[in-house]
Write a protein that binds this DNA or RNA. Structure first.
Lengths: 146, 146
DNA sequence: GTGTAATTGCAAATGAGTCGCAATTGCAGG
DNA sequence: CCTGCAATTGCGACTCATTTGCAATTACAC
């Protein structure tokens, strides 16, 4: 009965604890899928009746989490903003609904199993794949470019 | 010797011809990969010593091309802007360099051939896959949601 | 407790992309 | 070739997600 991404997520101990960061962590840990910064901000405004929360703080907290490798930032085409997800180990793919923009996690990575039956009840009309890494020039030279 | 995406690209005949559209078409047809609107704008400024070119025109021309299905718009994560590519038939995947952001076309679609050896001389450190389509709710209801 | 560096709130800046509007241009029909 | 009107363009102002400068606040080691 215990899902493997439920209650066992802990606030990372190599990151300075602040109320704001704990709140963002709490939301991301409880979320079923990626959230936008605005999503997070709005939910934060509701749950916090005391201190204020600045939008810029949300972005900065997310940036720290991402930099430390706890959060994955992604920007599905069709949406003009980024989505953030607490990283739970195994890499994930999503089926993005063209209409409501919901991101539905795939049951498994299609590269391991080409069946592509994706999530249940999802009509696939297209897909997008991007590989990341370094091209010949960039993998030999050091990190100079921009 | 004749590459299949070389000289045989024609300006579409179901689109009104203007100097600006022809120029954008010329650039995209000559490009080896996707270009950003800013790329296009800058190259246009150089090659055209006569009339002026507005950034908004570039966006509008690209929008028309995309709407008619001649151009594919994409936004690789890590870059905060969109890239446009003249559509040459078969769908394409790219290896995106994390450093210089160049988009290098894959020799074939990894879904057809899982080898994933990608372009030559490219070190893959990760990949991103997105499926597009409609979730259960959206595929049954009509197009109301935003 | 105290001090200091890290973090935050705020407000202003940025930058890609969009939009309204008046001036220009493509092109169908004479 | 000329005319007229709808489509297209240039311009500048605008939007909106995200970033940044700075002064005030806060976490946490000593």
């Amino acid at each position: 009965m215990k899902r493997d991404n439920d209650a066992e997520l802990q606030f990372p101990d190599n990151i300075r604890r602040t109320k704001q960061r704990e709140e963002v962590f709490r939301l991301l840990a409880a979320a079923s899928g990626p959230m936008s910064a605005v999503d997070i901000y709005n939910q934060l405004l509701q749950s916090m009746t005391d201190g204020n929360f600045a939008m810029s703080t949300v972005y900065r907290v997310l940036a720290v989490f991402e930099e430390k490798g706890y959060v994955i930032k992604s920007a599905p085409s069709g949406s003009d903003m980024s989505y953030y997800e607490w990283c739970r180990g195994q890499h994930r793919h999503y089926a993005v609904c063209l209409k409501c923009h919901r991101m539905i996690p795939l049951k498994r990575c299609p590269f391991e199993n080409a069946a592509l039956d994706a999530a249940e009840d999802f009509t696939i009309t297209g897909h997008k794949l991007e590989l990341y890494g370094y091209c010949k020039g960039c993998s030999t030279k050091s990190n100079v470019y921009k």
